[in-house]
Amino acid sequence: MSVLDRRRLLLGGAALGAGALLTGCTSNDAGNDAQVNTNTGGDNANAAPGQKVVIGFSAPAADHGWIAAITNNAKAQAAAYSDVELRAVEAGADAAAQRAALATLLAQKPNVIVLLPHDGKELNAFGLEAMKAGIPVVNLDRAFPDAKAYRLQIKGDNYGMGVAAATYIIAQMQAKGVSAPIIGEIPGIDSLELTQERSAGFRDTLTQAGFRVANRRPAEFTADTGQRAATELLQALPKVDALWNHDDDQGIGVLAAINQTNRKEFLMVGGAGSKAAIEAIAADNSPLKATVTYSPSMASSAISLARLIGQNKGLADLVELQVPKEITLASETITKENAANYMKLGF
């Protein structure tokens, strides 16, 4: 077996292990909609209380439903463990402010730091500093470019989101006999690598089917900017067959623009898997017919894995003695047919 094959096997197993960590027994309490691993019994030796672990945590301000869910999940997961103390610090308005807050956290010398940076490239230096100081860093969602800046990197499959969205659209267009569909795209913040990866997956998959994006209007992961971008796109395209909006929070504004212009001739695919989007898909009374997941449950997994790293343990279902270096969660497609199964994971 080649080194590459072994690496793929390890990462595939890691993704499976992380999935089992959460999806086997999740809680989505109506009070905070947190996605929490409650598997504390049975044969899971890792679940038993062990060495106390102090976990530092930082994520951008919760001005967005997905980010709010990230923070809620991290706090709820930490509270589920009697041997975990979570020390959360405010991230501030930008990377510089987050860096200052993290410097204070680093001085407290927690056992592990879980960090969703404003920007992975700009906070890479902090990851290197913490790792050099002997504090393992769990890099969440927005990737550090330097592998030495993190002990574990856990994120969603951004390229896979684009692949999943395009695959759904291609299948629907082919079923309708539309050979040259007019396809629109509303991404999030264009400067972020994750947005670029999502668009690349979407574009590459469409190209393989002989399709292309006719018009692309970036938004900024908010309802207001989603409404603006959708209005501009619909004005530019008198006819649309399909639309992919990268983010369900900004999708609220996209749907508002669609209603205002009374444009219902196309199907829309969302991104992330918000509860509102899943409910709309299940109701089947709008152009939104599917969404591709990018679940904030990754924050719950990050806390669980940070705990294991702090206790020098591995994943129970893997042969390896340590938590893997990288975990990428798969992007799944939610449609009317399976919406009920995913409702509990909406945020």
Rank of each mutant, 00 (worst) to 15 (best):
L192Y: 08
E193Q: 15
E193Y: 08
E193D: 12
L194E: 10
T195R: 03
Q196N: 06
Q196A: 11
E197M: 14
R198T: 14
G201C: 03
F202Y: 12
R203Q: 13
R203C: 02
R203D: 15
D204F: 06
D204C: 12
T205V: 09
L206G: 10
L206M: 07
T207F: 04
T207E: 11
T207V: 06
A209F: 11
A209L: 05
G210S: 13
G210Y: 12
F211G: 03
R212P: 00
V213I: 15
V213G: 00
V213H: 00
A214F: 00
A214Q: 00
A214S: 15
N215H: 12
R216Y: 01
A219K: 03
A219N: 03
E220Y: 08
D224Y: 03
D224L: 12
T225E: 01
G226H: 00
R228K: 08
R228V: 05
R228S: 10
A230F: 05
A230C: 15
T231Y: 11
E232F: 10
L233N: 03
L237D: 06
K239Y: 04
V240N: 01
V240P: 01
V240R: 01
D241G: 02
L243C: 05
L243P: 08
L243I: 15
N245D: 07
D248E: 13
D248N: 13
D248A: 09
D249F: 06
D249N: 08
Q250R: 02
G251A: 07
G251Y: 06
G253Q: 05
G253D: 04
G253W: 07
A257F: 00
I258Q: 00
R263A: 13
K264V: 02
K264D: 05
E265S: 10
E265H: 01
F266P: 12
F266E: 03
F266G: 03
L267F: 07
M268V: 02
G270C: 01
G271N: 07
G271V: 01
A272K: 11
G273R: 04
G273C: 14
S274T: 14
K275D: 13
K275P: 00
A276C: 03
A277H: 09
E279T: 13
A280H: 07
A283W: 11
D284W: 06
N285G: 10
S286F: 02
S286D: 05
P287H: 08
L288I: 11
K289F: 06
A290V: 15
T293I: 13
Y294C: 06
S295I: 06
S295M: 07
S295G: 07
S297T: 10
M298N: 05
A299N: 14
S300W: 08
S301K: 11
S301C: 09
S301M: 14
A302R: 12
I303G: 14
S304G: 11
L305W: 04
R307P: 08
L308I: 11
I309M: 02
G310S: 09
G310M: 07
Q311F: 01
Q311P: 02
N312G: 12
K313L: 14
K313H: 06
K313E: 13
G314A: 07
G314Y: 04
D317C: 06
D317Q: 07
D317V: 14
L318E: 09
L318W: 15
L318R: 04
L321T: 09
Q322R: 14
V323F: 04
P324S: 12
P324I: 01
E326G: 03
I327V: 15
T328Y: 02
A330G: 02
T333W: 02
I334H: 01
T335Y: 08
T335W: 09
T335R: 09
